[in-house]
């Protein structure tokens, strides 16, 4: 079976643009991303922790001593 030649990836690389514009956009994004990640993390970990404490307080403790 004949091998197909590997496509020349260098032809697909986008042309270089002005770095100054990209850096400014990156700065804007980097200021927003941590806040979003933090909000999402607080929500998910908070819900998990709430579920744990509800089970602890209303199921685990009332079931009484064991050892």
């Amino acid at each position: 079976m004949a091998l197909t030649p590997h496509p020349d990836l260098s032809s697909q690389v986008p042309p270089r643009t002005d770095d100054a514009i990209d850096d400014a956009a990156l700065e804007r994004v980097m200021r927003e991303v941590p806040s979003g990640a933090l909000a999402l993390s607080l929500l998910t970990v908070g819900l998990l922790l709430l579920a744990w404490f509800l089970m602890y307080a209303f199921v685990f403790l009332p079931r009484g001593m064991v050892g």
Binding site: L49, W52, F53, Y56, L61, M65, V66, G67
Partner: peptide, 23 residues
């Protein structure tokens, strides 16, 4: 802080309510 709170809750259950893993 979360891990500390959970550890304190487990210690509280063991010391006050005598809920311990069979050992």
């Amino acid at each position: 802080a979360i891990v500390t709170a959970i550890m304190l809750a487990i210690i509280y259950a063991g010391v006050v309510h005598h809920i311990n893993p069979p050992s």
